[in-house]
Structure formats: C-alpha cells, structure tokens
Design a protein around this nucleic acid. Structure first.
Length: 531
RNA sequence: GCCCCGUUCGUCUAGUGGCCCAGGACACCACCCUCUCAAGGUGGAGACAGGGGUUCGACUCCCCUACGGGGUACCA
C-alpha cells in the first residue's frame, strides 16, 4: 500500500476543506449513491461509466445504489428509453437496491410521479423570499438575450420579476399569467463548494443566474428536483458529469436555502469521443474512416463481454493498479476509491477494449464460449439456435477460433464456410487454390494427394489427419505449407481459415472430399481455359 | 465574450519535491514460435504544452500564456 500514501495525503487535504457536517458523510460509512439518468434516449458509455462508479462506491462501502429516473423534461422524453437504460445497467451487472421497478423506502423513484413534492418545496422557498414567481414570457427572455449578445454582455435573466411589488404580483396572478419560479441568488458575495477531485471551488455570485426551478408546466428543473430528491433520499455522494460543475454553486445555494447538508460532490471527467475532441455523443462517430460505437446496446450486439467492458470502463478515469490491467469485479470493488478518480477528460481507448475483450473471450470455458457464440452465429448466418447447439462442428471449431476473435460477432466470418454446402463455395479465384511459387498443375497434385490420403486416414480426427499430411509432404518432398495451402482453400474457400485439421475433422470425410473434388475441377477448368 | 475545469508517450495511465535522463498497458515496428490467421515469447521506438518564478533540487508547488473541454435554456 506504499503506493497509495500520496493518495491519503490528498485525502487529508480534502478533509481540512470540509466543514464538520460534511465530514461526517465523508467517512467510510455506507454510502447512498444514485444514478439519475433522464430518459431521453439510449444509454451511452459515458452514462454507463458514471453508473459503474456509483455502483462501485455503493458496493465498496456496503451502501446502496439507487436508480432514479429524471423525466422532468416532457419535450425530450422517450418513455421506451427507461427499459433500455435498465437493460444496459443489467448487462454490465450493475444491480440497484432501490429504483422504479423494485421500489424502496423513498418511492416513487420517477420524478414525474413526485411533482407535488417539488411544488411544495418551491413554494416554501417563495414563502421565505428565497425564490420568486417570474412572469416573463419566453419571447421577452429571447429578445433580452439577443440584446445582451449584441452588446457583447454576458447573457442572463435581468431579474425583472424579482423586484415586483405585492400589488404588481397580485395583478399578474389575477390576469392569470403563466409563471415560473426562479431561485433568488444573492446579489453579491461568493459561493464556495467542494468537489472531491478538485478541492474548493469559489464562484462570484454575480456570475450566477436566478435559475428557473419550477417550470410553467408545473414540472421542476433539474436544479430543484435533484437537490430535493438527493436530500429526501439521503444521498451521501453525488457522482455526475463534469458538465454540472458550473451549476454546482447554484446547487449549493439551493441546498443552503433549505438548510440541508450538501452531499459529497464528485464531478466525473467527461468522456471524449475517440478523436479526443468533444464530448462523446450518442451518434455514431467516424474517425479515420472507422466507425466507433457509443451506445451500450451496440457493444452488446457487437459481442463485447460484460466482464471485459466492466474491466475496461473501470480503468478509464480511475486506475486499478500501476501495472496490472486485468482484474475482477471483486478486486475492483476492493480497491476502488473515489478520491483517486482522475479529474481530466479522457477518450476511450477502443483498441484496448478489443484487446481486453479478446482476453476475456480466451478465458471462457468451451461451454461458455459455445453458448455465447450461438446467438451471434444464428443471427449472422441465418441458422437456428437449436441446430447450432446440437452441431458438433461448433464443438470442434469454437475452441480453435477462440484465440482468433476479439468480438463475438467476428466468429461468423471465421466459420461461415463450415455451415455452407460445397456448392456454395466459390473456387473461381485462382489465388485461393494456388500458393505463391506454385502453378496450377502443382496445386492439382496437392489436392489429389490430400484427397487420396483423406479417403483412408483413421481415425478421422485432427491429430491423425495432421500426421498423415505431414508424412505425405515429406514423401512428396514439398514444404508442409505447399500442401496445406490448396487444401485450406478447398476446405474453407478462404486463404485465411481456422486451423486446417480441426476444420477438416469438423467437416467430415465425405464433405471434405467433395470440396476438394470441386476445387480440383475449378483448377482443371482454368487449365483448359489457358491451354 | 464571460465564468469554471483540465493539460505526462498516438491512446488509457503511474507519478503528490530527490527513488524519474519518467514506470505499465493498448496500438505500432522487429525477431522468435508457427499449416494460414491468431495467440504466446523477446526486444525496440515513443511523453512531462510553453515561459517565468519558489527551492540545494521540480513531472510534482506558485504565476502567466497557449491549447482542450464544460457552462452560459421554462435541457438534463
């Protein structure tokens, strides 16, 4: 643990900055952390990573991981995305202890079902003069901003409604004007908050806005809803994207206005798109001609293993160990520390994910590998899952492609030939059957030699087939590769294939001979064409 | 424009004043192994954004600049 002594120094430093009431929460007690996505679309890797760190901290401290749906924006709402979100979390193995589907002591966990709670809290602030109703129309706000921009001044609400007298307010209410509630930010002074990773941050209150906390439609904005829920749900640690850093002072002010304690704030660095520029978006991104995935379900569909993804995501923004890159969930939970999170933005190293995924694939048992492969082969090759499950070809071939694939969806490209008929294999490309430094006659000879040998070899299994082939190569005084090459082409219809002898064994004697025969025919045609 | 945050090999990172002419991993290159392709093994190349301080000594502390990111909504 010597390596971590520096970390604890930093930890001490943060402790000094914390006030007494905040310190209690910073202790190592059971944490209550929440993942609070807004259901506006599919979950992407950035969101998943936030949830992952939430989960790690909850499990580490023996606390609770809470799922809360922040659906207060009706315009962007996509109701189906709630199930997509949950599916993504489950896929990675992030189980929640309280949430919309399973309930909990602070139900409901869907903000649209908590409107009354927010309304009351907003009203309490209005009653105490810490918030006020604003009757400005969106149109007025827009022209105001335009004017500010024109004058190159910072844009922001001019607080016109803040100074309204009681009679002016009564007048507007009588008229039935729609209104919002704005939080009344102190006009001067400095607001200070502490981010676990960055330390104390001070912001001049003059930079802050009288932000809307309750919209005209009666729904709260994030600023109110999240603060109220975090308090009511007794959240101890708030992990959220760095894009919230700028609004943290406002949140501190709101929390203070209610007289509540501030949770520990941890603003997670943004995840950059693969080009290293800009936040990762939900759109597919093409960098250097290659398309990068972003959505969780896309990674699932591409055949990334949850364990590999877990390992991968845990190690960006946080570092498990200076030397060891591969670790289990248990080890990650054991070592995870919030204050070790790196505050600088990072692009996802996709090549490393591929490497890790390959590594995890190689560690799969034969049974697990086969089971994992079946849905992919079924989908990509148009085969029935049941048929695949009972196909012995897969039992022979799956283990030999295991160290050759980095994603499950690559298997089809390695094995398609094994599930085709001899007639469907195209032997017309001469380079397929004729090796370098070989001619048509030579290749035909090799095919013939292979065929005659395969007719009699016993048992018809990879090892004995290989032995027979090597003997034959010696006998013909050719390099093994010269003999294997044309046979490989005949068997698989490819220049690059899984190991030859396992492939032959999988195909069986009869089918193999049929393919060699067809390949020979193709070469003979070539011969007569030329002759 | 204004405010906030960040900046170590191409990428993810270790590093918290001397252990660092900066360590690991992926990717890349070479060689070995080898039935193709992989996997594996060995080796190689590759970074402290720039400038000022502070200090006997700065990747590490402070300041400035540059660059990158985020925010500036009745979105989250």
């Amino acid at each position: 643990m010597i390596g971590f002594c520096g970390r604890s120094l930093r930890l001490e430093w943060h402790r000094v900055l914390m006030r007494g009431n905040e310190m209690a929460k910073f202790s190592d007690g059971a944490a209550r952390v929440r993942f609070a996505p807004s259901p506006t679309g599919h979950l992407h890797l950035g969101g998943l990573r936030t949830a992952l760190f939430d989960w790690l901290w909850a499990r580490k401290t023996g606390g609770k991981f809470i799922l809360r749906i922040e659906d207060t924006d009706r315009r962007r709402l996509e109701p189906e995305s709630v199930s997509s979100l949950m599916r993504g979390l489950r896929w990675l193995g992030l189980d929640w202890d309280e949430g919309p589907d399973i309930g909990g002591p602070h139900s409901p966990y869907i903000q649209s079902e908590r409107q009354e709670v927010y309304r009351k809290h907003a009203q309490a602030l209005v009653d105490r003069g810490q918030a006020y109703r604003c009757y400005c129309t969106p149109e007025r706000l827009e022209t105001m901003r335009e004017e500010q921009r024109r004058q190159r001044k910072p844009t922001g609400y001019d607080r016109r409604c803040r100074g309204l007298s009681d009679s002016e307010r009564a007048e507007r209410e009588a008229e039935g004007l729609p209104s919002v509630v704005r939080f009344a930010v102190p006009e001067e002074g400095v607001t200070v908050f502490t981010d676990l990773l960055r330390g104390e941050v001070q912001v001049d209150n003059r930079q802050l806005q009288d932000e809307v906390i309750l919209k005209a439609d009666g729904f709260p904005t994030y600023h109110l809803a999240a603060m109220v829920d975090d308090h009511l749900m007794q959240i101890t640690h708030v992990l959220r994207g760095e894009e919230w850093l700028s609004t943290a002072p406002l949140h501190r002010l709101i929390v203070d206005a209610f007289g509540w304690d501030m949770p520990v704030l941890v603003h997670l660095p943004v995840i950059l798109d693969p080009s290293g520029k800009g936040k990762m978006s939900k759109r597919k991104k093409t960098v250097a001609g290659k398309e990068y995935l972003a959505l969780v379900h896309e990674f699932e569909d591409a055949g990334y293993l949850p364990d590999a993804m877990f390992n991968f995501l845990t190690n960006v923004g946080w570092n498990f160990d200076p030397v060891e890159e591969v670790f289990s969930r248990e080890e990650a939970i054991d070592r995870f520390q919030l204050e070790e999170i790196n505050p600088s933005a990072a692009a996802l190293p996709y090549e490393k994910l591929d490497w890790l995924n390959g590594l995890y694939i190689r560690e799969l048992t034969a049974g697990a590998l086969k089971a994992a492969l079946i849905p992919f082969l079924s989908r990509q090759l148009g085969l029935r899952e049941d048929d695949l499950a009972g196909d012995r070809k897969l039992d022979i071939l799956a283990p030999v492609i295991q160290e050759r694939i980095k994603r499950l969806d690559e298997a089809a490209g390695w094995l398609d030939w094994a599930f085709q008929d001899a007639e469907d294999i195209n032997y017309n490309e001469p380079k397929l059957l004729i090796g370098r430094k070989m001619d048509v006659d030579g290749s035909i000879q090799m095919l013939q030699a292979g065929a005659s040998l395969l007719e009699t070899v016993e048992p018809f299994a990879a090892e004995s087939i290989q032995g027979a082939f090597r003997e034959k190569a010696d006998e013909l005084d050719v390099k093994a590769g010269s003999l294997f090459g044309p046979i490989r082409g005949a068997v698989s219809g490819k220049k690059v294939s899984p190991p030859l002898f396992e492939s032959i064994e999988a195909l069986g004697r009869e089918e193999t001979l049929r393919r060699i025969e067809r390949a020979k025919l193709a070469l003979e045609n070539l011969q007569t064409d030329e002759g």
